[in-house]
């Protein structure tokens, strides 16, 4: 697994995720990266990567909506100007 730090340097994170507990894709996977988003700007996140953790919070066993909420809240949070993703191919 790789730790990727995404700096919040754009209005949007700019990723689309698919997957979550009780679906064919058990862990959230990046299916799209939008140009101009923070994820695209960091140049380390790639389509196809599976997200294991967000800021140390494990996404294992979480339903899709909950995993998406955790990522969205991490991006909206004013505590940090970055998000740490633990990802795997």
């Amino acid at each position: 697994a790789t730790l990727v730090r995404v700096v919040k340097n754009a209005n949007t994170l700019g990723i689309a995720i698919e997957g979550g507990a009780n679906t064919r894709q058990p862990m959230p996977r990046i299916v799209t990266i939008q140009k101009g988003g923070s994820a695209h700007n960091c140049e380390q996140l790639k389509v196809g990567l599976v997200i294991l953790e967000v800021n140390g919070i494990s996404l294992r066993g979480r339903e899709h909506k909950e995993a998406a909420r955790i990522i969205a809240e991490a991006f909206k949070s004013k505590e940090k100007d970055y998000i740490d993703f633990l990802v795997v191919e």
């Binding site: 990723i15 689309a16 995720i17 698919e18 009780n22 679906t23 064919r24 058990p26 899709h64 909506k65």
Partner: peptide, 16 residues
């Protein structure tokens, strides 16, 4: 395991 996965529903996609 593969059969079990195939019986699971496909996941939705969320843009963040």
């Amino acid at each position: 395991v593969r059969e079990k996965r195939l019986t699971l529903p496909p996941s939705e996609i969320t843009m963040l």
